[in-house]
């Protein structure tokens, strides 16, 4: 078990190391997310009084759009440079490959979010957050589920002609619970209006995350075999 976790961490660290050489994926993903803050601000012409109402949805939309592109790019680079095949030679269970990649994407998205949250808060004229830890919890649980399914589907579509278009089309419908739940929890964190539903949303997100980390880890082997 310990060796397995070490392998997962090592695989994630490998990706992080490669990313640190140029920060290409990170910069592209983060700048796209930030750009969306500007786009949303002008597209919806939001008055400052309504900021808190639109902030969670706008933030999540930006994370999903930018994150999808980021994961597609990451998977594409792996495919082109044959890194996937290289990692497949590692003497570990195939599921570790999936979890390592998943962890790397989670870290990547966390960095993007760390930049995006203050920018979105400013763009939507947010006057502070009532429960910041709840906002972070909602972002974390939502991002985990997003990274898990995104990693699975991005890896599988990476070799295809229509990669860029196919990934969001197959990924977004599956992410409905994450989108709704993530936005609901972040919204509760911003306004401080925690209800019984907030607890249900958190439970739903946890179930989603665990389910869609475990099932892809089990199926990854049959997906990737040549």
């Amino acid at each position: 078990m310990k060796a397995y976790l070490r392998a997962v961490l090592a695989l994630a660290a490998k990706d992080a190391l490669l990313e640190r050489k140029s920060f290409e994926t990170l910069i592209a993903t983060a700048s796209f997310a930030l750009l969306l803050a500007v786009v949303f601000h002008f597209a919806f012409d939001i008055a400052s009084a309504e900021g808190a109402r639109f902030f969670p949805g706008a933030l999540w939309t930006a994370i999903l759009f930018a994150g999808t592109i980021g994961m597609a790019r990451s998977a594409r680079v792996d495919e082109v440079e044959g890194r996937g095949r290289g990692a497949a030679l590692a003497p570990v269970d195939r599921s570790a490959l999936f979890l390592g990649k998943c962890l790397f994407h989670l870290a990547l998205l966390a960095v993007v979010e760390a930049a995006a949250v203050p920018v979105f808060a400013a763009a939507f004229a947010l006057r502070g957050m009532a429960l910041p830890h709840l906002v972070i919890l909602g972002l974390f649980l939502g991002t985990w589920g997003f990274a898990a399914l995104g990693t699975l589907l991005a890896g599988a579509t990476a070799g295809e002609r229509a990669t860029g278009l196919l990934l969001p089309v197959v990924l977004f419908p599956l992410l409905v619970p994450v989108i709704l739940g993530g936005a609901a929890v972040v919204s509760a964190g911003v306004t401080g209006e925690v209800t019984a539903a907030t607890g249900s949303w958190l439970r739903l997100l946890v179930v989603f995350d665990v389910l869609f980390t475990a099932v892809p880890a089990l199926l990854y082997e049959s997906l990737m075999e040549v």
């Binding site: 699975l152 419908p173 409905v176 709704l180 949303w201 389910l211 869609f212 997906l223």
Partner: peptide, 23 residues
């Protein structure tokens, strides 16, 4: 194989999607 995996994952997602829209 991807389609097969997607079919399985999509099916497992249905109860969660339904629960989330109910909430």
């Amino acid at each position: 194989r991807f389609a097969a995996v997607f079919g399985i994952v999509g099916f497992l997602d249905i109860p969660l999607i339904h629960y989330s829209v109910v909430l």
